[in-house]
Amino acid sequence: MKIGVVTFPGTLDDRDAARAVRYAGGEAVALWHDDAELKGVDAVILPGGFSYGDYLRCGAISRFSPVMEPLIAAAMGGMPLLGICNGFQVLAEAHLIPGALTRNQHLHFLCTDQKIRIENNNTAWTNSYTKDQEIVIPLKNGEGSYQCDDETLKMLEGEGRIIARYVGENPNGSRNLIAGISNERGNIVGLMPHPEHAIDALTGPGVDGLGFFTSVLKAMVK
């Protein structure tokens, strides 16, 4: 199983994402933002970082990178696509998922081990978890406050598309404690915290994040 990891100028977490794919038993394939090809991968991860220096808006310029055109087409066709942190922002800017990520309500950059609850374990990226399982993975962002209009929020709640929610105090002002959402089909997931940093107890708060990467391998076997 080949999982592509896209590197934009300013991406930080591509290596950790590729490592997480390997830990889960998949083959990580490096994809470059300026190449309009997916190299035959079965799924793609848009990793975290500060692509294009977060100029204009986070993810706004990356969204028009050459790699995005085949990627958007493939994801619309059902290919699993996970956007983590900056990747989540790219997904929102590309309107592959509704809403937008805005400046943390308290204005501070946040870096902490965060407890989240997996509320929908029927997506391509969460099926390794049990429903309502609580996990701890790092959260590190400046613009992680999820915002959308009331109608969209009602739709996301009603359709079970809030796949993960922050547990405890709201860390960044996200509406309804949203940590991650999916598209209608469940193959595209945007997630603000970082599962790829929690796959080995030596280098992270634990191994709770590995499930996202084993999930997509299982989803592709099905």
């Binding site: 204005l107 915002q147 209009d149 002002g173």
Partner: peptide, 13 residues
Amino acid sequence: MLKPEILDPQGKA
């Protein structure tokens, strides 16, 4: 400009 209903933490600061 941010839409009126969107919280503007920078403006608030």
